[in-house]
Write a protein that binds this DNA or RNA. Structure first.
Length: 379
RNA sequence: GGCGCCAUGGUGCAACGGUUAGCACAUCGCCCUUUCAAGGCGGUAAUACGGGUUCGAUUCCCGUUGGCGCUACCA
């Protein structure tokens, strides 16, 4: 430990003393063809001050600022010079950036002044830290915004989450769609403490947006997901097909956590090809008489004069009563038969969404499997 | 090492001299229930430490400790 510290201390570069070179010495070096970088000649006394919209007034002794490089010996400008020149050129009025730039701001102010330009308004926002409390980086598993989109996060939700890291509207409102965020934002609400990126809360925001955002805004995202998984059908683009899609997505969304859930556990609503989840089968297809009862249910449903929630409900409960079993037994078994899993929206709503044809045929298709067969794939 | 910034539950924010220290996520429990969620209700949990200032400090000042950042011919 101590030796490592001593080592880094020894390796620390000594401050450049070129400023003490006499004119003759400079001429000599230049004559010898020595490459030279151009540094900012920082006053050895006085202070440099600036006002930060978030951190307030700031003052630093010039003696603390080294003669930093402006132009490298190869002629290329450094970041410090570049940003200032570019911002002046573009007439930038507000420089809003991470607090990691706070310490370098005095240098930039010096450049503005040296160039005869008025410094812009600076606003430094707190850093976002990983769970280990160090600045967020690739090493945290993470990642670009793009990777969050790939994971199935909605841009709107991600933005809302990010906005609340280091900023608050003043009251306790947290669900703030972009338009509202824009309306409420002010630099004055920005905090000065670094924030830890809290993944669980991000996921919570995603579920909020998934289930609350206007359905027409959500649909394009769902379409994108379905296309990506090869489940999209053009008939859902307009008319009755679109209306059906909207209703179905609305049915599914309260229990989705990510966009991919629509094509994941929700797959059976968009495709006839789906599998019976092993756990669901084991749990809800135990009763030996099930195949027989589900067959009767299929027949009853096929003969129903009307196809709606209540009609399905009555038909199933009637059968359960006649067979002397609890309705739940048939409900759960039927759910697995028509959507392949235990995790799904309420049964009768699901049946309406799927339509009579599919429900009846899926029930019949499941009979041999329910009876203890080995097949696990339907369709 | 030097300089700077920051410090309220596990996490993100409120309270900008006087509140039983509030909200959300997470967590635990209960209700609801047709699976899984959602939702509703409730619980556990915080002012880093030490000095001041003040009738009164989470809040203002100083110190300590801790964290982070900058300290490159990186950006």
């Amino acid at each position: 430990m101590e030796s490592a510290a001593a080592e880094s201390k020894a390796m620390r570069r000594a401050p450049c003393e070129c400023r003490n070179l006499t004119l003759e010495e400079r001429a000599a070096k230049k004559g010898a063809g020595e490459a030279a970088a151009i540094r900012c000649l920082v006053p050895r006394s006085g202070v440099t001050k600036f006002e930060d919209a978030v951190f307030g007034p700031s003052e630093i002794q010039n003696a603390e600022i080294e003669d930093f490089v402006l132009l490298r010996s190869n002629g290329l400008p450094t970041y410090q010079l570049s940003v200032v020149v570019d911002d002046i050129d573009m007439r930038i009025t507000h420089v809003i950036r991470g607090a990691d730039h706070l310490s370098n701001t005095p240098k930039q102010v010096l450049i503005y002044l040296g160039l005869g330009a008025a410094p812009p308004i600076f606003a430094h926002v707190p850093l976002i830290l990983g769970a280990d409390r160090t600045r967020l980086s690739k090493r945290h598993g993470a990642t670009s915004v793009g990777s969050y989109v790939e994971e199935g996060f909605l841009p709107e939700a991600f933005r809302n989450f990010l906005a609340l890291l280091g900023w608050s509207s003043g009251d306790d409102t947290e669900y703030l769609p972009t338009a509202e965020l824009v309306r409420r934002f002010s630099l004055g609400g920005v905090s000065r403490t670094n924030a830890v990126f809290d993944r669980p809360k991000l996921e919570w925001f995603n579920t909020q947006y998934l289930s609350q955002m206007p359905i027409e805004e959500l649909l394009p995202h769902v379409e994108g997901q379905l296309r990506m998984d090869g489940l999209w059908r053009d008939e859902w683009s307009s008319g009755d097909g679109h209306a059906w899609l909207a209703r179905t997505v609305d049915l599914l969304r309260p229990r989705t956590r990510f966009l991919k859930d629509f094509s994941g556990w929700g797959r059976a609503f968009f495709s006839d090809e789906f599998e019976y989840e092993g756990e669901a089968r084991a749990k809800f297809w135990k009763e030996p008489r099930l195949a027989e009862m589900l067959g009767k249910l299929a027949d009853a449903l096929a003969g129903l004069p009307e196809w709606n929630h209540d009609a399905c409900d009555h038909a199933l409960r009637e059968l359960a009563a006649a067979e002397g079993v609890k309705a739940g037994l048939l409900i759960n078994a039927t759910r697995v038969a028509i959507v392949g899993r235990a995790v799904a929206p309420p049964l009768f709503d699901s049946m309406v969404a799927l339509g009579r044809e599919r429900v009846v045929s899926r029930l019949r298709r499941a009979l041999p499997v329910v009876g203890g067969g080995q097949a696990t794939t339907a369709g």
